[in-house]
């Protein structure tokens, strides 16, 4: 219990410090002004979401291989937290894009593949609700998770080659070259904070799933008596 509280305090504290840094420490961007500060939150959440989906993919593979329910709980926890992160990305993106590009959305490779990634993991979570038997649910959703994760780079490639009519300022979206050193520090601090926070959420979700599994076992035992 103490470990969970410490983890919570550290994660929330880091996010609070990172938010403070992105508002008060980072210098104001010259052309975009204050709205650019959303970048620290937007891009770091995207990175955390992508890492989370990668962990989900590894957990899916491990479940198929080892068949331990722990990997299924981890896969579920990661898919949910990852989907939540990408939801944040898809909401903060248009908020940033509207004043800067003048449009809410453009069907550019990065945006579209993020959108498809989000839909795929929503489908993964939906699939889980439609499979009743726990072991079958774990196995089949893990298989779908593997398919989904492999699909995303191909989606990115396909759309980058044929559907890139995006306005030039999109290049500003990435932490590419020419980022001010203070901005860079603040950004990577945000990335760290978001990863720790996502890790905290995954741990909590995992713990919840573990408890639920324990309750199910107890119920079954009680019924058998």
């Amino acid at each position: 219990m103490l470990r969970r509280i410490v983890f919570a305090v550290v994660a929330i504290g880091l996010v609070a410090c990172a938010t403070y840094a992105s508002f008060y420490v980072a210098p104001e961007e010259r052309t975009m002004g204050a709205i650019q500060r959303i970048f620290y939150f937007h891009a770091s959440t995207a990175w955390a979401g992508e890492t989370t989906f990668f962990v989900c993919f590894v957990a899916n593979l491990l479940y198929i291989w080892k068949r331990k329910p722990q990997y299924d709980w981890l896969g579920l926890a990661c898919a949910e937290v990852g989907a939540a992160c990408i939801t944040v990305v898809l909401v903060t993106g248009p908020i940033w894009a509207k004043p800067v590009w003048g449009i809410w959305w453009t069907w550019d490779a990065r945006l579209t593949s993020t959108f498809v990634l989000w839909i795929l993991y929503i489908c993964y979570l939906l699939l889980r609700t439609l499979l009743d038997e726990p072991e079958r649910r774990a196995l089949l959703s893990a298989l779908f998770g593997v398919f989904a994760f492999i699909d995303v780079p191909i989606v990115f490639g396909a759309i980058r080659w044929w559907r890139t009519q995006h306005p030039a300022p999109v290049i500003m979206g990435g932490p590419g070259s020419g980022l001010d050193p203070v901005m860079k520090k603040v950004f990577f601090f945000n990335v760290l904070a978001m990863h720790v926070f996502a890790g905290f959420l995954i741990a909590e979700r995992y713990y919840l799933e573990k408890t639920r599994h324990g309750v199910e076992l107890l119920q079954r035992e009680a019924e058998a008596r």
Partner: peptide, 24 residues
């Protein structure tokens, strides 16, 4: 085939996965 709501589920899983095929 092993899930509930299977008629609705297959297009739901299939269409997003096939985005690259559709685009290309």
């Amino acid at each position: 085939a092993q899930a509930r709501m299977r008629e609705l589920l297959l297009p739901l899983l299939l269409l997003p996965l096939l985005t690259p095929v559709l685009v290309v």
